[in-house]
Structures are given as C-alpha cells and as structure tokens.
Nucleic acid binder design. Sequence first.
DNA 1: GTTAGGG
DNA 2: CCCTAAC
Length: 592
Amino acid sequence: MVSHKCVEQVGYKDSLLPPNARAPRSARRRSIEKTVVSEDDNMFAIDLLATVAGHLSFESGSSLMSVDKLIEDHRVVTQNSVKMEFPEEDTPLMPPVALLSQDNSYQGSLSPCGFSSVINGKVEDEAEGFSYSGGGGGSDAFQVGNFSEDVKPGIDGEAVVLDARPNVVVSLGSSSRTEVPSIGNCASHGVRDDVNLFSRDDDENFSGYIRPRVTKNSPRTVPRIGDRRIRKILASRHWKGSSRHADTKPWRNYYSQHQKSYPIKKRKYFDHISDSMTDDYRLRTKMHRGSRKVSSMKGHGTSFVSSDSHVKLRIKSFRVPELFIEIPEDATVGSLKRMVMEAVSTLLSDGHRVGLMVQGKKVRDDNKTLHQTGISQDNTQLDSLDFSLEPSSELPQLLTSHPSGHAYEEVLPVCETATLDNVLGSDHHDAALFPSDPLDNNNMTEDSKAMFPVVLTELSPRPLCRTSKKSEQQQQAAQRRIRRPFSVTEVEALVQAVEKLGTGRWRDVKVRAFEDADHRTYVDLKDKWKTLVHTAKISPQQRRGEPVPQELLDRVLNAHGYWTQQQMQLQQNVDKQQQETPPQIEDTLLLN
DNA sequence: GTTAGGG
DNA sequence: CCCTAAC
C-alpha cells in the first residue's frame, strides 16, 4: 500500500518540494507548541541557594563584612533543583555536587526552570555513588543492513543530570501551630497521605543521565506479566510497572540505562513534623579553613583557594519551612511543582529571613563582623555554623491552587482505581507507578534521593476518601497522559532502531529500543518518528523544543527516505506480481 | 494487537 | 498524545 504521501516525502528528501508543503501538519503542531510555551512560562525557578561553592565562598576578602551583608550577598539562587527529604530523617548530607551555574544566579528573583536538576556543562562533583552512564560514539552514516546488534547508540555527552540536589525540605501538612483551612470532607478528616515528588521533571529534556553506580534490585510490586502484549497495554493505559529481567542483548536495555524519568514518587507518610522551625530549616554549612590549599572539591569554580582573611563557607544542605498547598486532585503534577516552586521562591524572597547560628548560638546582631562573631579562618571550631530560614510571620505559607492564575493544561494521571490516594498510598505502589526506575532504590542513601514529602490538602470535588465508587469514574479516569518530550538520547535510540528495522515495524522498534520505557508505546514512537521527519524537513528556525542534533535529523531523513523507497519497491513488486500472475491468484482462490 | 494517518 | 479505521 503506497500512498501518495510516500512519494511526496521522498520528494521532500530530494528537495523537490518546498519544506512547508504540508500545511496541515504545522497547523496540528500549533496546539502542542502552545502547551509547551505555556508550561515553560509557568515554570518558576526555585533555584534555592544551596550548595554553590562559588557563591557561598566568601570572596569579598574583608572580614569586616557584616553578617547581614554576608547573608544578603550570598542569598543566591542557583540553577539547582530541590532535594526533597523528610525532615525527621536526619540523613547524611548530600554531597554538594551542584556547584556550577554561576551564570544562572538570581538574587531574589525567579528564573525559569523546573525542579529538576539539569546541569549543563562538565560537572565534576562529589556525587559518590553515581556514575555518568554516558558514552561517546558518533553515529555512522545510515547504512541499511550494516548494523551490528551490539552497536549502542552514542549519546551526546554534553549535559549531565545530577540527582544530587540541595536538601530542601518542604513539608506540606498540618501544622502543629497553625490551623490549616481545609475544604472538603476528607480534608477535615486529616488526609495525610504524602506525595513525594521526585524532582526529576519529565518535562525536562535530558541529554545524559546519572544513575546509581550500584544497581540494586529494587522491589517491584507488579510482577512481570508473561504476555508482553498484555503488559504493554497495561503500561500504556495505566501506570503499571514491570520488572526488568537481565537482558543479554545490549541494545535492549539501552534506553532504560540512559533514561528513566518519573514525575513523582510517593512514600508513606510519617507523622512527624518538626516542632522547631528553626532547627528544621537549618542550613548546614561547613567552614573551610582559610588556606591556600585547594579543597578536595573538584569542578569549575569550586576550588577553595582562599586568600588570607577570607572565610570560606559551604552550605551543604538547605531546608525550607513548612508549606501548605491546596491543590485540586485533578491538577497536574506540573502545576503542583510550579506551586511548590513558587511557594519556596516566595518563601525565600519575602516570607522569611535568614538566621545565623554559630556553635549553637544565635547571632542576632547583624552589624557584627564575621570576625567578631567568631567566623574566621582561624577558628577551627566552626563546623557548626548554621544558617536558618526564619519565618517573618507566624503563619505558614498557604498556597491556593492557582497561584499564577493559570489553568491546568494537563491532569494528573490516575491509577486504575481513579483515586488519588492510590497514587499517594504507600511505598507499595512505587514500582507500579514508576516502573523500572533505576533511581527507585530503597537502598540508596538519602543523599541521593530526592523526596518531597507533601501532604495534599484535599480540596477536590472528588475527595480521597471516596474510594468506593470507582466504577463509575473509571472511564473518566482515562485521562490524557502527561506530555513527555523525547530527549536527544531517546531520539538517538529511536533513530537507531528505525534505521535497522524500518518505519513499519513500530512494535519491534519498541521492543528493541524502548522495551524498558513503559511510558513509550510503539504508537508514541511512531508519532515521534513522524514529527522527527517533519522536523528534519523544516528549517532549524522553525523547530521548537530541545534541539535535535542535525546529525540525528540527517539520519532520520536518510532512514525515512530509504525505507520509503523500500516500501515503494515492495509495493511495486506486489503490483507486478499481481499483474503477471492473475491466473495463479484465481487458481488459488478457486482451490480454496 | 498493530499499523497508518488524521486530529 | 489521542483517536480511529483498517488489517
């Protein structure tokens, strides 16, 4: 079956047709792009100060600098995302890996970025336990039939996603001291299920990934279903997970090794909410003795070469006070993230002030010099230098569901039961929601986990407690899946697979290159290829989203042209056969 | 269940 | 990404 479109597209390839010949396609794209822009616009920066050595190192040289000035000057916002952890879990501090982004500093302002930590550039860090699962490897020109099964698509090693972030604990829940206004029957009962948002954002495009070096078997709730077709349906329709078995074929797990991103994690709620706000928000810092020694920290702009009267500080973790967020159940994860981001940003910008404790004593006099306060390079006892965020008001921040006045473009995907509490329920469902997440590792240190304890104040017209009437809502639960833009890595894998398999075997492409990517159906891959072909044909100026390397687009065009031709030839042969041997066909029919 | 294509 | 027709 050869449609004229095939011919047309071959024509494109040979530049016989103008690149914009197909108007309907671009028209279709418009809606998608609109969504993208809208989301990006809503993305507020969190950029919590955190562990930026370059900023937190006190470079101004004068020990006469007042504490106040010091704090102000270094209340930087950096392009790091939020590390989420539970307040009560006083876990080892995360290694300060996010040490870049000097160019992304903002002071008290918001910058467009998500929670996710995408650190572009060459990061050398102290993120122990992580390895960059990248690899070089340019791709050869498209040669059909000359593909090795063992060839792994190369990835561009330009960007690295670090899963270590500043420890920002945002605990959303009922306060011990403040009444949280709650609407809805369930809220009044104190729904305290938690959602822990894994801060890796799906909306971000990653070019590389950090994954735990030690691959431990994380428990999978949902066992592998033998029939892959059944499994696929489940995976595509619901947030069903599947365990991955060890696969000897190198290309099979290629994708899974390089990209796993899941919007949220959940974890069992624990009751504890810290009573001491100050303690909870303490900034862990470490003094670095002033010396000419270069510290053990590696990386750009992170060396601690200090001059004499300088004090070098490094904030190793950072916590923000309790927040309360009201958000409808059907709000999107992205909107929740934005809310949290805005909450934290607001909190940092005006709602709170920075406190300082030296060796357990609060330093209230802002006019004291660091030296007078005891913060000096000669003071060896300054390991206990704590910054804190102190609420200027007694009331915790209460956010409403539409902080920015934006409507939700997407809805939170729901589980089969169509109730949010199944999403938030317990650890038990982790695997189901986030299948084969290499980072979903219970054995990981808290340092490398990015958890976000959140208690959703239930306000939606469909309360959490209404779990009984699920059948009627079940159909409604088939919400639109969240948008998950393909990363360059994924495109690479897709191109690689299509080069080998062609454009008509999407199920095979799926199995081959995206077997572990349960959120990518073969239809998705087919669609992506469709857009890739289109993207390759249009001018770079017209392209949106994360730029796909031209090399990949060239391969897309090549492969597309090749397989299109192949398909045409096949069809021609069929036609010829039909013309040549009509009697045979008739004979066959007659015989049957 | 897959594939192809419009929306 | 969704939907649907066609196979």
